[in-house]
Amino acid sequence: MKAFFDDRQWRHAPRHFMANGALLPNPEEPRRIEILTGGALAAGCSFAAPGDAGLGPIAALHTAEYISFLRNIYTRWRRIEGAGEEVIPNIHPASRSDGYPKSAVGQAGWHQADTACPIAEHTWEAAYWSAQTAIAGADYLLEGGTMAYALSRPPGHHAFADLAGGFCFFNNSAIAAERLRAAGLRPAIVDVDVHHGNGTQGIFYGCSDVLTVSIHADPARFYPFFWGHAQERGEGQGLGYNLNLPLPRGTGDADYLATLATALERCDSFGADVIVVALGLDASVDDPFQGLAVTQEGFARIGAAFAATGRKILFVQEGGYVSDTLGANLTRVLSGAQGG
């Protein structure tokens, strides 16, 4: 399988992470790259560096205002006397209709949903090349490939059009799907991350030409809390084009795979000719977030289920954090997709 990655993605090394009021090491650490690369190589992937498609494919989904913010905020932040080493918001608007401030602190609150997306010196560069990695995967399918893996890091599925959150800055899976849609294909995004793909849902919530499906731990008591509930079906022209399939905490292979079958049936009904898999591996029984309980064998069957659709498949890396089985889980997904 063809795989894509750019070395500049190593440069984002977030330090700040707060959970339940406690400061903890940030789990979206660069070491994930080493583990995931090893897992992909073990599945027989051959890596290539992405080309630079420019800002156009990113700006097709993310606002110019937000892109300008991400590009410049670290430099502006460093001008603040006594500012911390990372851009972290401490105030947020009550709604998206509130006034847009000029202050760097205020804009951080506007464009960063939570404290899990700290911005440091090299965040812009890494996020840009993470998006280019997903774009390269989409282009590979457009050029005749049938299956590809994009090692996009930092991940993307919690990023809205103008809002970072949950370790995510640019929505790589959404950018790839839009690239495919603009070329005349009919893409479905199936998000298998343990967390709901709230940014992806938000970007396409009013659209009828991209199907969004997310399988995730029930957000009633799990991040991102405010999105991912079953009643969220889309709005306007997009009504019926968003499907959320929340699962009880601790759900294992059998129920997970039955839910995936429901997701793929919806892709059939949509008439999808390509599926972008937002590939979170944090549904693993061994993942530090402990949301779901998918085993290595379960991941192999997930990969095989996508391949069995007979469609073009682009796997875009989302979550999946350091554990003894992280690399093996990726190997099992990609091997399963290739019939191994």
Rank of each mutant, 00 (worst) to 15 (best):
R179C: 14
Q107G: 01
V276K: 03
H92A: 12
Q9P: 06
E297M: 07
R15T: 11
D255G: 04
G199D: 03
R301W: 07
W129E: 08
N244I: 05
A60M: 04
G99P: 03
D98K: 05
I215H: 08
Q231I: 00
S269W: 02
R233T: 12
L279A: 15
Q338T: 14
S208Q: 12
D6V: 12
E81K: 04
P25H: 08
A48M: 02
L180D: 12
I189V: 14
R79M: 07
I203M: 09
F167W: 14
A59G: 15
T75V: 13
F226M: 06
R8G: 07
G44T: 10
G21N: 01
P118D: 02
H216G: 11
P25F: 00
L41F: 00
R179N: 08
E297I: 04
Y140W: 02
A22C: 03
Q107W: 00
R76M: 09
G206Q: 14
L264Q: 07
T262V: 15
Y223M: 05
G199L: 07
T123W: 11
P25G: 06
A304S: 11
L281R: 05
G319E: 07
P288F: 01
A217C: 15
V210Y: 04
L292Q: 11
D268M: 01
A308T: 00
F5A: 10
M1L: 14
W110Q: 05
S103G: 06
D6F: 08
F270S: 03
D7P: 15
Y74Q: 06
I58Q: 09
A305K: 14
E125A: 15
A148H: 02
Q338S: 14
L330S: 06
D253W: 08
L257Q: 13
A305G: 11
G320D: 10
A43R: 01
G336P: 12
R11Q: 12
A300H: 10
L23D: 00
G202F: 02
L334M: 04
I35Y: 03
A126D: 10
A19F: 12
L330A: 11
P93L: 10
K312Q: 15
P118N: 01
F315R: 15
I58W: 12
G327Y: 00
A337Q: 10
P155L: 07
V190L: 09
P155D: 04
E178K: 09
T251P: 10
S97I: 09
R79C: 03
A64Q: 13
A283K: 14
G339R: 08
P101F: 00
L141A: 01
H16L: 06
A188R: 03
F169G: 04
S214H: 08
